[in-house]
């Protein structure tokens, strides 16, 4: 007797980890702090306090593709992204930063933080070029690890979010059930 695979059953190979099984908030914070000290400045601190983002926000992110697939997303107010870019460039910052300068510097911070987070995840994985704009949507609230920090008094979030929707919940087969 042959059976047809309807695709409804969950296979062993379908099992995929969610980010909270692979990394925690403390590790993400430690990675971000290290990046901040190296890129932004030795005295720059990230304070882990939840705080509301302003209305005008900007995100930068890199995608990780591998055993876990998703994005590492930094989001902050546009003015804070500009201040971050200026801090990153220090004395080589132009007097007037244009959008391209901000996108480039803010994107590089996402690249460095994302690269370090990728290294903490199971591999091998690929890392995309950084992107800047509106953050990718959270596809699965269960595959999300987010850290809220404050830098120079301004809120910033670091979100490690899966790119795939949740797997369907397996339902018990009624195929062999005998009606009473």
């Amino acid at each position: 007797m042959t059976s047809t695979d309807t695709g409804q059953r969950r296979r062993g190979s379908d099992a995929r980890p969610v980010i909270t099984e692979l990394i925690d908030e403390m590790t993400i914070l430690a990675i971000a702090e290290e990046a901040w000290v190296s890129l932004v400045g030795e005295d720059e601190v990230l304070v882990p306090i939840p705080s509301e983002l302003p209305g005008d926000i900007l995100s930068s992110w890199v995608d990780v593709v591998g055993p876990w697939t998703g994005s590492v997303v930094l989001t902050t107010g546009r003015a804070t992204a500009e201040e971050l870019s200026r801090a990153l460039l220090r004395e080589s910052a132009p007097e007037l930063l244009d959008d391209e300068d901000v996108a480039d510097a803010f994107g590089e911070i996402a690249n460095v933080v994302g690269g370090s987070i990728k290294a903490a995840l199971p591999g091998p994985s690929g890392l995309s070029l950084p992107q800047v704009g509106n953050a990718p949507l959270v596809r699965n609230a269960g595959d999300l690890c987010r850290v809220d920090v404050v830098w120079r008094g301004e809120p910033l979030t670091i979100s490690v979010q899966g790119a795939l929707p949740p797997l369907p919940v397996p339902t018990p087969s009624r195929e062999n059930e005998v009606p009473l």
Binding site: L88, L89, E91, S92, D101, D104, A105, E108, P130
Partner: peptide, 12 residues
């Protein structure tokens, strides 16, 4: 480096 920011940092 494709990042101008990183080029400036390393160049500095």
């Amino acid at each position: 480096d494709d990042s101008r920011a990183m080029r400036r940092i390393v160049t500095g």
